[in-house]
Design a protein around this nucleic acid. Structure first.
Lengths: 227, 227
DNA sequence: GACATAGTCTATCGGCCGATATAAATGCGT
DNA sequence: ACGCATTTATATCGGCCGATAGACTATGTC
């Protein structure tokens, strides 16, 4: 409660930075596998090789540590999606952009979404935490959920709306966009890591999501042009 | 531990049945909103209007109560999917069935899946628990996950494999089926209940999932026939 | 009315939780 | 070498957890 705005960053002058980062990174793993409530401070401390009060010292509280973990993921999400976000924004601002370009951008968004949750360091942990943000209720998870909405869902929804000549606030557009994104989010669930998400499988996922998306809008637009 | 096989059903001759059912039904709600670890026995007892030891008396333990809740959901899942499962099994056994019929069955499966997680009594709770089964780890959740796999995923995968003339064990078939089902499972997540899943929205979801699925296989099969 | 059984109650156990008080150690400028 | 701030360690607090012991009540049978 007290640390909502103070961020409780102790005035470390470089000496404790190592410890702080080690706690942060191991906490990502523990929170991902055990959940927020399931991970105990003793467990978190042990995995980081520090003693219990170090968590309060560096992050103020268990909740503070969790929020720090979430924020670090959000930062990486933003930087991962940023370049594409610029392209999408530009395309949406220009009313002359053809549907083919919009469709290609949508496919790229979905592809980037796949690589976001299946690539980079700490993939497994990120994937699990992202999945939890869609289900659990924990002190900072709504931030992660909102981040996904803002950086992935909203741009996709606007692309879909433009292609189908509808308002982005149209309920059907929203539902359709969710269905499209569901093709990706399901790979954050348990079933996805039984044989493991090898690079080949990731590439296969990206390929077939693209196939599906292209097929859907190919048919949807040809039907629309008939009417 | 002790009650793994005994199911700890006390020899109630009707008198305690009411209490037992009341605990079971309110527990469904509490477990759904709070999660397995998040729901305390005191909370469960209070919501059911009983005192604490009643849970041990009727279900042996908190875990026993949770397993009972899960099993009741699985039973309803089975009876909900059973009629369609028969049709699918018959179609798969007959090698002369045309693709159009298989595709129609796949659409029906997805439609039934939607109505499974968005209809019937205790919808919200069922939806949330189903979502949790894809993310959390709790004593009986793997049963629910397996049930979904057996009653929804596997039939769909076999239909997809047949339509695309591939083995059901083909990795790409599996991934493709997951993507299709993801269109539905995403509506079990948090975002789905902000404006609420009204009957109109449910119908809209069923309609567009059908549209998407038809479009995907229309294109996929026309491409296959070209080669 | 005595008794057995089923069901409900109060009180309490040991254990793990997050957090803190506080002491010990560490490194650094001087 | 000393003083001081930073960092790490020990010991412990109050609180909630799941589970149980055991007394009490209601009900149906003879």
């Amino acid at each position: 409660m007290v640390h909502l705005f103070s961020r409780h960053r102790p005035p470390s002058q470089g000496r404790g930075e190592d410890t702080r980062r080690r706690i942060l990174e191991t906490a990502l793993q523990v929170f991902a596998t055990e959940g927020y409530e399931g991970a105990s401070t003793r467990q978190l401390a042990e995995h980081a090789g520090v003693n219990l009060p170090a968590i309060q010292y560096y992050f103020g509280s268990k909740e503070g540590l969790f929020r720090a973990v979430i924020e670090s993921i959000i930062e990486r999400t933003e930087s991962h999606m940023a370049p594409l976000a610029v392209e999408v924004k530009a395309a949406l601002a220009d009313p002359t952009v053809p549907n083919a370009t919009l469709l290609e951008l949508l496919c790229s968004m979905l592809e980037a979404f796949v690589s976001l949750v299946t690539g980079g360091p700490h993939v497994e942990a990120k994937r699990q935490l992202f999945a939890r943000s869609e289900v659990e209720d924990a002190p900072g998870l709504e931030l992660l959920h909102e981040s996904g909405k803002h950086h992935v869902f909203t741009p996709c929804r606007e692309l879909v709306a433009r292609m189908l000549r509808a308002s982005p606030d149209d309920d059907q557009i929203e539902l359709r966009t969710m269905a499209l994104l569901g093709q990706v989010t399901i790979f954050c669930h348990k079933g996805a890591h039984e044989p493991g998400l090898t690079p080949e499988r990731v590439q296969a996922i990206q390929g077939l999501v693209r196939e599906h998306t292209l097929a859907i809008f190919q048919v949807l637009q040809s039907e629309a042009s008939v009417h």
